[in-house]
Amino acid sequence: MYRTRNLLLAAAGAFALSGCQYDVLSPAGWVGDQQRDLLIISVLLMLIVILPVLFMSVYFPLKYRADREDTSDYDPEFEHSNKLEAVVWGVPILIIVALGYYTYVYTHRLDPYRPLDHLEAGAPVEIQAVSLDWKWLFIYPEQGIASVNELVVPAGRPINFSLSSSTVMNTLSIPALGGMVYSMAGMETKLHLIADEEGVYPGRSAHYSGPGFAGMVFDTTATSDEEFDAWVEGIRAEAGPLNRETYLALEEPSMNVPVSHYGSVEDGLFGRIVEMCVEDGKVCMGHMMMVDHNGGGGLEGVGNAAAYSYDRARTIDGFGNRIELPPMESHGGGHGSDHEALNGTEAPNALAYVLAMDPNALCSPFGTQTEKETNGI
């Protein structure tokens, strides 16, 4: 009876696992191939230690058990063996050297910021990926389109990702193509992948980000150049625009969002997203750093806090619902309403200083460039 039950359980487990996709061990891109090779090499090197240990953990207790008949090999005076010392110390050292070598080689070879130009695989495709609550926005700056929860790329051409986030940290993961990199608010990270062959590969966020995390998935479709161009033209002809207004509407928390498209993209929108100043009246991060570099706004600048606030307007509860917080209060400046600070009707001290340095500071997509010009970095 127990044998039958165990066989049934084993069959059920095998049946369940038959639907799994082992993309990590069966990748469809150069980066994934390299990562698989590094994984296999590391496992084989570690097995050099693990397998003998497993063998000896069974062999020695059996061979030297107390009730054995032949005890002539018992040597209570044993102290040292050069051969044994050479094995005990030499093998681990060689394994560490080998692991260090391969780690060095593959760390530089698979640097996510390193372009795949060495593959000579054709012109790369630029994609700006933004993780939202709880969906992915993919902007194609060269084609002037955008898609939500759908990534279409031409097979055989490098994909240059620029990543950011609207709120919490996420991770862009397409296991079949290899690699994954965090997307973080106020930062731009890079990732370079390639699909060697046509197909559909699942992607998702690999970093838990709240109640809608389970539905934060998308399909990556690798097509021919002709099919990719046709897909782009179809979106241009039918979809509406992605501008600051439509982006802010898309940014609202939502779960299990269906695929949607945008036929045009406002210039500099991704830069505004990274600089956290898509909304009218928000001071970009580059300008915030410029003010900090020059000593800050002091107490009199507290009244402009709303122009610098970002997370407050995106506060949510444990179910993903937006929480409306009371207006920010002024403390000592006398100019503290959100409306005044956001629209610049009263711009004392810090905000006036920023505007004097750059009239386009409020909601400017050029905050980073301005910071470089101002601070010389």
Results as ranks from 00 to 15, higher is better:
100 G>Q: 01
41 I>R: 06
226 E>D: 14
68 R>G: 07
157 R>M: 06
47 L>F: 10
370 T>W: 07
297 G>N: 12
138 F>V: 02
12 A>G: 04
67 D>N: 03
80 H>G: 07
2 Y>W: 15
314 R>V: 11
344 G>R: 09
228 F>I: 07
318 G>D: 02
199 G>W: 04
365 P>R: 10
315 T>H: 03
297 G>P: 15
117 D>N: 06
170 N>A: 04
235 I>Q: 00
155 A>N: 09
245 E>S: 08
46 M>F: 04
71 T>S: 11
149 N>T: 08
8 L>P: 12
358 D>C: 12
240 G>I: 14
234 G>C: 07
308 Y>L: 09
191 L>E: 01
84 L>Y: 12
104 Y>T: 11
42 S>A: 08
101 Y>R: 07
236 R>T: 12
262 Y>L: 01
182 Y>V: 14
224 S>C: 00
245 E>Q: 10
162 S>C: 11
23 D>S: 04
306 A>Q: 05
377 I>S: 05
281 G>K: 06
343 N>I: 10
26 S>G: 14
6 N>Q: 09
344 G>M: 07
293 H>A: 01
100 G>F: 08
56 M>T: 15
231 W>T: 12
152 V>Y: 04
144 G>H: 11
71 T>H: 14
330 S>K: 06
22 Y>M: 04
52 P>M: 15
190 K>A: 06
186 G>L: 09
148 V>Y: 07
310 Y>S: 07
363 C>P: 03
92 P>H: 09
335 H>S: 11
21 Q>T: 00
102 Y>W: 11
59 Y>R: 12
145 I>R: 00
137 L>Y: 10
1 M>I: 10
85 E>K: 02
22 Y>N: 06
156 G>Y: 06
73 D>M: 10
363 C>I: 02
336 G>Q: 09
199 G>T: 06
6 N>A: 12
127 I>Q: 13
87 V>S: 00
113 Y>I: 11
24 V>A: 13
332 G>C: 09
85 E>L: 11
330 S>Q: 10
303 G>P: 13
162 S>I: 10
116 L>Q: 13
